[in-house]
């Protein structure tokens, strides 16, 4: 056993040495297979405790690592869920892995959605595309704990009806009276009967109480910029808005330098940050 492993002793997968895990189940989120969800299980020991909004580093043998948010847990079956979009070298290799294949996992890393701040209040979740993945554990929490928040507004924006994620979950969530789910698409198509247009419009119209609401945002940066403006215009204060920012996270422990965004190391200080703490840099280009 070496020093790095000793540093990780007690909690598998900490430090820079992954722990061996396995893909317990795999399902396609989008018909073309470009977005898929893994349920992963450690070879030994317990699933680490994670907080909604955190991420793991997933490793494919010989190919590399990617930071992927935790999109849920199957507490009963001892697994964690990760939803991946095959978009780069590593995630495309991961697209070809099958159930039962071995992977490496380090984590969890980063900051979490502040569920306590939202307790008893209206909670607005704004998700763009695969940005729904790190918000899914918040919805699972709201499903299991109906008293946790006053009302939950899940506002989902996606490209088209075919790219809608977690469709079964969305249907199940929609059936709960304290959960209000709205999906809007950029392009509808003839069979689409829902909203068309930017998700910002849903923020403008949702029936929440701006004076006692908390918002969690995750999606492309332009979407989040406009969602912040819409929330501000409704009167939600900056310290009640939280955004999850994507940067190039490689080490997860604040020592490789890649994920810097202004004064923040996003793997350590992020990905979830309170808007009033980032307002001065949120609009700076190429930072």
């Amino acid at each position: 056993m070496d020093s790095l492993e000793q540093a990780a002793a007690g909690r598998p997968g900490e430090g820079l040495v992954p722990a061996p895990w396995r893909i317990a189940a795999r399902r396609e989120e989008i018909a073309d297979g470009s977005v898929f969800t893994w349920s992963v299980r450690p070879e030994a020991g317990e699933v680490p405790i994670y907080r909604p909004g955190q991420f793991n580093m997933l490793y494919a043998f010989g190919v590399g690592e990617v930071p992927i948010s935790i999109s849920g847990d199957g507490a009963a079956s001892g697994t964690l869920m990760h939803t991946l979009r095959a978009v780069g070298r590593v995630t495309r290799a991961m697209q070809n892995l099958k159930e039962g294949d071995a992977i490496g996992v380090r984590g969890p890393f980063g900051t979490a959605w502040p569920l306590e701040t939202a307790r008893g209040r209206d909670l607005i979740l704004v998700a763009g595309g695969i940005g729904l993945a790190p918000l899914r554990p918040v919805m699972c929490h709201a499903m299991r704990n109906p008293e946790a928040f006053r009302r939950v507004f899940l506002l989902i924006g996606c490209r088209d009806p075919q790219s809608e994620l977690f469709r079964d979950d969305v249907i199940a969530w929609s059936r709960r009276p304290h959960l209000q789910v709205e999906v809007t698409v950029d392009r509808g198509g003839p069979a689409w009967r829902g909203h068309v247009g930017v998700v910002t419009k849903r923020v403008q119209r949702a029936d929440f109480d701006p004076s006692d609401a908390v918002a969690f945002l995750c999606g492309p940066e332009p979407m989040m910029r406009f969602a912040v403006l819409a929330l501000q215009q409704r009167g939600v204060s900056d310290d009640r808005i939280f955004v999850s920012m994507e940067r190039n996270m490689q080490c997860g422990i604040g020592t490789c330098g890649h994920c810097q965004w202004g004064r923040y190391l996003m793997c350590r200080d992020g990905p979830v940050l309170r808007y009033d703490e980032i307002a001065d840099i949120f609009d700076v280009r190429e930072l």
């Binding site: 492993e5 820079l16 040495v17 722990a19 061996p20 070879e43 039962g100 294949d101 992977i103």
Partner: peptide
């Protein structure tokens, strides 16, 4: 198919 991770 099991992976073993070690660091020198």
């Amino acid at each position: 198919g099991v992976l073993r991770f070690e660091s020198a």
